[in-house]
Design a protein around this nucleic acid. Structure first.
Lengths: 196, 196
DNA sequence: TTGGGTTCGTTTCGATGTTAGTAATTAAAG
DNA sequence: CTTTAATTACTAACATCGAAACGAACCCAA
């Protein structure tokens, strides 16, 4: 590690970013969540065509891949592993059930709970897609280099997997909410404002 | 860098992940896009309350912060910088216009183009939120450590900012689409299947 | 056993992501 | 100068996100 520092201020921004700034930079830190968003998108850009080719959404594939590795899971487990909120998962699983990709069955001992697993058709699709995904990973590894990829995994693990002190939260001021939304007109009530 | 390697197979998975696997692991690589998704969520978890407090969505704040640093931008520039697709941005900007956060005006020389900039109200909100976001970053830095955070930025830059060979794409088989969706019944036509 | 608290999955609602397609405008080709 | 291409922003349709709340099933204690 400890590579030469890169000038970060306008890096990662296209040429038009050099225009005059009217407001003093109010946040000194780079937008880290957005960096992750960009990183993820740069990767998914190469996997999305594969999934689309088989008529799957990203979330559906995440669930299929997870179920192919874990066999039987309950919805809340899928939520944690696949980073899907419970309300979203309800719809996703319902559609995947309709498509015949997964099987859902209630747990006899606890009628609240549900067990989800791959259907034969689901497994078949996983078998069809997996080698393509694996091949794409190899292409990515070839472009980035095995070492860089290892560094990436390592840092991500150190930040988000290994134990670390909890992150505190800033306290919020009192009358903040009033600063924003003035009850936007309901859609359809008024035609959307267009640029003048 | 070059820290001791961590056993990765079941790391980052809860205890229930040790159950027997019915299918041979078909993809040897860890799910990298999902790691980024998780990383981003772990961060946003600490910023979301700030934005909600001011009645803003994540996307709205990304745009506000960007406009506060770049002054005048066209929609396609905002799309690139903020990682928002054009169709989404249309609605977001429309709502932000209704809320009085931004100002949109067409370019006289080219009637296709539009210029977006902060309104007085938009600037005011940025001024109110920025110190809170900045403070939250400091808390994150305190928990993770300045060094680790620097490593993180460094690796992300090496992967997604510095020039690198392009990533090739796997070729897709022919009759793939047929493997998936069998024309799912339209919502409302049939009641959603429930777990048996 | 009965009422209150809890867990789990779900529905609801508004906003955004994704894909496809369109209208308007401008630029390039013939 | 007309026809074609390329740009730019937008709309439409559906799926998902994110916050709130609901309802059924379970748990527990009075």
């Amino acid at each position: 590690m400890m590579r030469a520092t890169i000038p970060v201020q306008i890096k990662n921004l296209p040429a038009f970013a050099t225009k005059t700034q009217s407001v003093m930079r109010s946040i000194s830190h780079r937008n880290l969540p957005q960096l992750f968003l960009k990183a993820r998108e740069e990767l998914m850009r190469h996997f999305r065509p594969i999934l689309n080719h088989f008529g799957l959404t990203e979330q559906q594939w995440r669930i299929l891949r997870t179920l192919s590795e874990q066999d039987r899971l309950e919805p809340w487990e899928i939520c944690e592993i696949c980073q899907i909120l419970s309300p979203s998962l309800a719809g996703v699983l319902s559609r995947m059930d309709d498509m015949g990709l997964v099987i859902r069955q209630r747990v006899p001992e606890d009628q609240r709970r549900v067990i989800v697993q791959l259907s034969a058709r689901g497994e078949k699709i996983v078998v069809a897609i997996s080698p393509l995904v694996e091949a794409q990973y190899k292409l990515i590894e070839k472009a980035l280099g095995r070492e860089l990829l290892a560094d990436l995994y390592d840092v991500l693990d150190r930040v988000f997997v290994e134990p670390r002190p909890p992150i505190a939260r800033v306290e919020l001021p009192e009358a903040g909410a009033s600063a924003a939304a003035p009850a936007r007109a309901k859609a359809g009530t008024k035609p959307r404002k267009k640029p003048s």
